[in-house]
Amino acid sequence: MDDERLARFEAVYRETYGQITAYAVRRCDSPQDAADVVAETFTVAWRRMDELPPGEEATLWLYGVARNVLANHNRFEGRRKARSAELDVRMADLYTDSPESGVEREAIALAFRSLPDNDRELLSLVAWEGLDHQEIATALGMSRNLVRVRLHRARKRFSRALTEAGVHSMPRKRPAPVEETL
């Protein structure tokens, strides 16, 4: 039985390590933090192997575990992130192509950070992880319809936050001046 358990864990680990690592890297401030989150995620998976669903559902289950591990991690890192966020934006502005692009990137980042945690998580699962509504529902333990409704609302809130920050999704062209004819 222990050999079967170990073989299953190793198979799941090989199949999902890259996805779970990418998930953690995109949500952590440092590679070390991401490595800690991944290690803790697979530690939980090992301890709870009996609860690990078969097949593709294992990946979604691991996303849910990683999300919980990240929530615990973020509770402790919240203050540090707030202090370093302003410095990170300033450093990014130093290395941008133009001042306008840095300002817009800062505005987008601030708008995104202004969203509730649940909105940021839903938008990230779609944009960064490429999950569809059903996969998100499985990972978060909710219905597909609830995901659809919450994602719609999150997108509206993000759009509103971007508008309030003066960020436009498409550059707007000014109409050509009309010349008067004499």
Rank of each mutant, 00 (worst) to 15 (best):
T138S: 06
N145E: 11
G166T: 08
A161F: 01
D29M: 09
P53Q: 04
A111N: 01
N145S: 10
T21S: 06
Y23P: 01
I20T: 04
E104C: 13
T96M: 10
E164A: 08
R47E: 10
G78P: 00
D50P: 07
H73S: 03
R150W: 03
A165I: 07
R155D: 08
H73W: 14
Q32Y: 07
R105P: 03
E15N: 15
D119M: 08
P31K: 01
P31H: 10
V69H: 04
Y17R: 10
V103M: 12
A71I: 12
A66K: 02
N145M: 04
P177A: 15
L131F: 14
E56S: 12
P171M: 15
S30H: 13
A35L: 02
P54L: 14
E40K: 09
I108G: 04
E77R: 13
E104Y: 13
D36K: 04
P175E: 14
F158H: 00
V37T: 10
R27S: 08
M170S: 12
R174L: 15
G166V: 11
L62Y: 05
V167P: 00
S98R: 14
A66T: 01
R148S: 11
R47L: 02
S143Y: 07
E51I: 04
E56F: 02
E4P: 00
R150A: 05
R80K: 05
A107N: 04
R148F: 09
L110Q: 12
E40Q: 12
E15S: 13
V178A: 12
P171A: 15
K156G: 06
V147F: 00
E4K: 08
V38S: 04
N72F: 06
V147A: 00
F76T: 14
S101P: 02
L60V: 03
L131A: 03
Q134L: 12
N72W: 10
T163R: 14
T16H: 08
V12C: 01
L122K: 03
Y13M: 11
N68W: 06
G18V: 05
D3M: 11
A85P: 01
G18F: 00
A109F: 04
R14S: 12
T41H: 07
E179K: 15
H73D: 11
A85H: 14
F9Y: 10
V44I: 11
V44K: 05
V147R: 01
G55I: 07
R150L: 04
L162H: 10
D97C: 12
V103T: 15
Q19T: 06
T181W: 10
R8K: 13
